[in-house]
Simulated assay, not measured.
Amino acid sequence: MNWAAIRFDWNQVRAFLATAEEGSLSAAARALGLTQPTLGRQVTALEAHLGVPLFERVGKSLILTPSGQLLVEHVREMGEAATKLSLAASGQVQSVEGTVKITANEMVSTYALPEIVKGLREDHPGLVIEIVSTNSLSDLRRREADIAIRNAEPTDPDLIAKRIRYDSGGLFASEELARKLGKITEPKHLAGAPWLGFDETDEMIDALVRRGVPVTRENIVARSKSHAVHWEMARAGIGIGLNSNAVGQKTPGMVPILADKLKFEFPVWLVAPRELKTSRRVRIVYDRLAERLAAMD
């Protein structure tokens, strides 16, 4: 052990770690029971001691600099070691506690995550799961979420990603609308049918046209940025909607349209910031999501 190299103040290191975990000085100060100026001075003192900036400000948030990203993994290990030391000294068994924030699109958030969260809470009562239901991509580096479920492979090298599976989706109509449409055995039979769109309607139309479906913007009778609203309009019989087969085939009153000819496959990726791989609670949630999402029908 090189004792001479250990010259930093643990309180400064703890302030740095809390700020990295919480995303802002004010949130870190609340977590540690300190005033914001006191915590800010501790972070500044650590930066001065190390000779490198650890954070940069983006809007109202603080994000780690490259130097901060390099150091935070070591500091997090120190924090976990300190926690284990305190628990061992008090005779307690280490438990998994704290908040883990998961971001996913509306349909995954609504139909897949509740059962997974229920199992996590039963096994780890100290966990608090926050679900950010959004169809836009959350910025994991700015700690808008700890874990993301996405349908596109991330390109950021500071993120770790695992492709869980390939999912499939298709076209669905209410039983009432399906009766009005009559027998449909080929894509051309959908000419003139009413369709539901998303905010990216042109992309949806292009994908359908490439598969031989005669649909134009004039066929879009209603649209919504919300996938949940889109699906409820489909259930109401307003038009043909799109959804994953896992949801569509299990929804009462919904009929698949040309399921054998019009199947759309897409990957399911599980993504997290690279520095969070040493966080035990995030790793537990990450591994559970990987296991359960891979096993979904």
Results as ranks from 00 to 15, higher is better:
S95Q: 15
L64C: 08
M1H: 13
K263I: 02
E275L: 06
F266D: 05
P273R: 08
I160D: 11
L208T: 09
R274A: 10
E122A: 15
S174Y: 03
E47V: 12
R141C: 07
K180Q: 11
E77D: 04
A81C: 10
G23S: 04
K263G: 11
S244G: 15
L190D: 02
A294E: 09
L39G: 06
H74Q: 14
N105S: 04
G169K: 07
P187F: 00
D199I: 02
V215C: 09
F198Y: 10
V128F: 12
S224M: 04
A234S: 13
T83G: 11
E175N: 02
V96T: 11
N11G: 15
A173R: 01
M1F: 13
A89V: 07
R141F: 10
K250W: 10
N135W: 03
G239E: 04
D9Y: 05
M204C: 00
I102F: 07
N2E: 12
G79T: 01
T38G: 13
A31C: 10
E200G: 05
I116L: 06
A145E: 00
G59D: 08
L32I: 03
D146I: 00
E21W: 10
R235Q: 15
K250V: 07
K84Y: 10
L70R: 14
R142M: 08
L177V: 05
L87H: 14
L34F: 05
K101H: 03
R217S: 13
R217I: 03
A31W: 07
V93R: 15
R165T: 14
V128R: 15
L181P: 02
